[in-house]
Design a protein around this nucleic acid. Structure first.
Lengths: 158, 158
DNA sequence: AAGAATATGTTATAAAGTAACAAGTCAAGA
DNA sequence: TCTTGACTTGTTACTTTATAACATATTCTT
């Protein structure tokens, strides 16, 4: 995982991220009586290894390499499951999906998208959510919140 | 305009909002040497009167009623212009567009989307943006920020 | 083993957004 | 005033993203 969001913008071994995260996902799904079936598991691996946001059709292309048929519902169903289980997030600015960096933990995801290297950092947005709650009209109950910032990371600015 | 975002969730005369806002847009565009052509002006009116987020194709349908041809670029070009000029915002969660409530003023838009009545409130998100900036890794420069919350307004909860 | 719930296979289609180029409009300088 | 260049619109065609609907298969429960 990425306890430090800054690591998202640093080079590192992606396959290492993947292994532990998959193991944790297995445990989590078992605890919830949810099935991390082959497509779902592979989809999560694909997101973890990409280490950036991937469009559903990009995921689908990679699933095809693994023998699954190239049909949109294959990818969308797996992605929807992962999102519902909090193992992945949907990045609306990009029409894309990314593996969650804090699976199983209650958190408000906030995203930084580097337009230079396409890297994506997920950071805890609790404070951001509180600021919004304060600003919101009395009585409005926030269910789901998207916080997505596009910009340039340190490396890409220099 | 809506100095008080809470008004977005209260019933009121939409056509009244529109008139003043259009007049202001005219002034603003003149000052910037930008042309608020008929399609653009009508598109802005449509957004202002709808008083909620409208998909590009919904806008297009209404433009057709005014004699414009039903061709996607007609709507997208007008909408893109309005967004570029800060007269409208794009709501990514909804694949939709809404008139800006603070045209000509520097601000960070934050949106509350009521899933009960589909009303949309735009509120100043400066504090929210600052919270995110604080949480972001050193060196990341935020260019554009989406803050979009889905939930239920007071009226729809009761 | 039967039935219910869940997951996958498959076809088809809807919805959202863009590329590319031709044609028209407008404003400013020669 | 003419013409040049920038901008705007018209139009065709297409790409990308996402979902509906229904059949089949798998798994869990009793």
């Amino acid at each position: 995982m990425h306890p430090d969001p800054a690591l998202a913008f640093a080079t590192h071994d992606h396959s290492r991220c993947s292994g532990a995260a998959i193991a944790q996902a297995e445990i989590l799904m078992a605890a919830r009586n949810q099935r991390l079936t082959p497509v779902r598991k592979r989809t999560l691996e694909i997101l973890l290894q990409a280490h950036k946001a991937l469009g559903a059709y990009e995921v689908l292309d990679k699933l095809v390499d693994d023998g699954f048929r190239r049909q949109p519902p294959v990818a969308y169903r797996a992605l929807d499951f992962l999102v519902a289980q909090g193992l992945a997030h949907r990045i609306r600015r990009l029409n894309a999906f990314a593996a969650c960096m804090y699976p199983g933990r209650v958190h408000v995801p906030a995203f930084l998208i580097c337009e230079g290297c396409q890297a994506l950092a997920e950071l805890p947005g609790q404070a951001v959510a509180e600021a919004l709650d304060t600003a919101a009209p009395v009585g409005f109950k926030i269910d789901r919140l998207s916080i997505e910032a596009a910009g340039l990371c340190l490396a890409c600015r220099t």
